[in-house]
Design a protein around this nucleic acid. Structure first.
Length: 585
RNA sequence: GGCCCUGUAGUGUAGCGGCCUAACACGCCGCCCUGUCAAGGCGGAGAUCGUGGGUUCGAAUCCCAUCGGGGCCGCCA
């Protein structure tokens, strides 16, 4: 070892000891005579003092030190002189009196500050990610991520789960997201696909009799990126045999609450997790992933609106739609400009317009006042329990428009700072429909085709598929979908029935799912599971706005890695070996 | 594919038709300095204002195009 101690671990108990430490020059304060260096390693900072009277040679080297030089220092740990302690530093009561110093490696001046937490262009950070990761915040995020995953492993191990790896080179399953393909050298014209999730594999592990499986699984989806979406991401994938929905719900609630208590004791969790039906979530929050850190609930005003002459309301209601709204507290003073902005916000999400109704003495400021009676306005205000000074934001339309209102709810909460940053509002979304009617016509699974229908709804598969509920559950936290899971189908008959309902031909089913169906004939146990997204979870725990802040080497929005400059072109030679010809049009 | 935001020394910002020969802070370089800790003092170097066109007597500033970045919609079984 090049060192005897860690910088950040030095403490009063080491006073008088001769130690050797190594690390990066975090900051230097050169007084001409004395030189102070804050030396940093993974554990933290310690002040090193270079005194020409202690070591002339050491002092001379110290004057040459610059940011991020890597050095090895030997010296004596000393109590700091009276009055020079630094309470801001964990090691602030002591310092190392340097006797010897060796520069292990000098450093160019970094392109951005390592020692300050200021916003830096993300491009630059990603290009020099190894420097960015030296910064305190990123270091903490990566360590937090480690602790989260470690906790999950320990938690599941204690409960009899077995960690099992599944292949990364697997078979393409064209439904769902776009696959990442890997050409086969050995089989010209054939491709592997990277798994979008180990779904079928973990079900087969249940058939294999492992009963409780988990994996920290990398998943790949070739879709466009978002703040909370990367082409490759990590899930805690788990599956259990001989369980029902309630078992999974209980297990996950225990996992998440104990996880937060362990890794983020400052943060609060709603206990027990509130449970909402998919229907209620859509009605009250305009989304299936509501942020429950604040109220601002959507209320239906259709019955009141039905009595008005307002054409916008009437036509929406006639088409079978609704008139709904939210109440923004204390926003009646919003300027024309601000109100226009909100209208644009919902219009960008498919609403025709936004009716804004400030609750003030003279109601002259809203168009709606021309069409609504004082009585109707009062009734609407009462439905929200609104006060004078509040602002009602109302849209009319169908489902799509209600989602716009849900987005507006989130936007207003953001503007008003309603979300408690120390609250993790986990909740369950339950009672999902099994199927959705697709735009192209035909039924498609709301989640995936392996989800089991409610037992009592099975007869409806033939008569009214839209009424079938799924044994499916989502965990949502602070407006973010954290995990999705279900009890799976475990019999060949039911699985085939679902495939048929989804319009898959027998040939397709045989090709894509033949192995799974066959496995079901060899004593597949009832099973189910769930797969929490680790990137998103750690993002919430770290209080970050994007998962890129909790992924060591993420890709940017155009799916490129700025450090490696990937993806990159490959040689003609490589292509030939893979039997590939480029068609760039 | 669409909508919105954004690009000024190494970094973060200011400037938004002429006062810009582009300002400030930190960083960087040099000198001074023995108790600092975001050390301090003095001095210095460093930017063809993403790129290309246009409008104008005059463009960092206005317009168009283009490139890069970010957010969102679509997409994400």
């Amino acid at each position: 070892m090049l060192r005897t101690h860690s910088c950040g671990k030095l403490a009063k108990k080491h006073i008088g000891e001769r130690v050797t430490i190594a690390g990066w020059v975090h900051r230097r304060r050169d007084h001409g005579g004395l030189v102070f260096i804050d030396l940093r390693d993974r554990e933290g900072l310690v002040q090193v003092v270079f005194n020409p009277e202690v070591s002339g040679e050491g002092h001379e080297v110290a004057t040459k030190l610059r940011h991020e030089y890597v050095v090895k220092v030997s010296g004596e740990v000393a109590k700091r002189p009276e009055g020079t302690e630094n309470p801001k530093l964990a090691t602030g009561e002591i310092e190392v009196i340097a006797q010897q110093i060796e520069i292990l490696n000098p450093s160019k001046t970094p392109p951005f500050y390592i020692n300050e937490d200021i916003e830096v262009d993300e491009n630059l950070r990603l290009r020099y990610r190894y420097l960015d990761l030296r910064r305190e915040k990123m270091k903490e995020n990566i360590i937090l991520r480690h602790r989260v995953v470690k906790f999950m492993r320990d938690f599941l191990d204690e409960r009899g789960f077995i960690e099992i790896e599944t292949p990364i080179l697997i078979k393409s399953t064209p439904e769902g997201a776009r696959d990442y393909l890997v050409p086969s050298r050995v089989h010209p014209g054939r491709f592997y696909a990277l798994p979008q999730s180990p779904q079928q594999l973990k079900q087969l592990l249940m058939v294999a009799g492992f009963e409780r499986y988990y994996q920290i699984a990398r998943c790949f989806r070739d879709e466009d990126l978002r703040a909370d979406r990367q082409p490759e991401f990590t899930q805690l994938d788990l599956e259990m045999s001989f369980v029902d929905e309630q078992d999974i719900l209980t297990l996950m609630e225990e996992l998440f609450t104990s996880l937060v208590e362990n890794v983020k004791p400052m943060m609060r969790v709603l206990k027990p997790f509130p449970r909402l039906s998919y229907h209620d979530a859509m009605e009250r929050y305009g989304t299936d992933k509501p942020d429950l850190r604040y109220g601002l609930e959507i209320r239906d005003l259709s019955d009141i609106a039905a009595g008005s002459d307002f054409a916008v309301f009437r036509s929406a209601l006639q088409r079978g739609g609704w008139v709904k709204g939210i109440c923004a507290p204390g926003c009646a003073h919003y300027s024309r400009r601000q109100l226009d902005e909100l209208a644009e916000f919902v219009q960008a999400r498919g609403a025709k317009g936004l009716v804004t109704l400030p609750l003030v003495e003279e109601q002259a400021r809203s168009i709606a006042t021309k069409f609504l009676t004082r009585q109707q306005i009062t009734e609407m205000a009462m439905r929200f329990g609104a006060n004078k000074g509040d602002l009602l934001l109302i849209v009319a339309g169908e489902r799509k428009v209600m989602e716009a209102l849900g987005a507006l709810r989130q936007e207003m909460a953001h503007r008003l700072g309603l979300a408690d940053p120390n609250l993790l509002a986990f909740c369950w979304i339950l009672d999902f429909p099994l199927l959705e009617w697709s735009d192209e016509g035909g039924w498609e699974p709301m989640h995936h085709p392996f989800t089991a229908p409610r037992d009592e709804d099975i007869p409806l598969l033939d008569s009214a598929p839209e009424k079938v509920h799924a044994k499916h559950y989502d965990i949502v936290c602070n407006g973010c979908e954290i995990s999705s899971g279900s009890i799976r189908i475990h019999t060949r008959e039911l699985q085939e029935k679902i495939f048929k309902l989804l319009g898959y031909s027998e040939e397709e089913v045989r090709q894509r799912f033949g192995n799974l169906l066959e496995a079901f004939e060899y004593g597949a146990p009832p099973h189910g599971g769930i797969a929490p997204g680790i990137d998103r979870l750690v993002m919430l725990l770290a209080g970050e706005q994007t998962i890129r802040e909790v992924i060591p080497f993420p890709k940017n929005q155009s799916a490129t890695d700025l450090m490696f400059d990937a993806p990159s072109e490959v040689s003609e030679e490589q292509l030939k070996e893979l039997h590939l010809k480029l068609r760039l049009d």
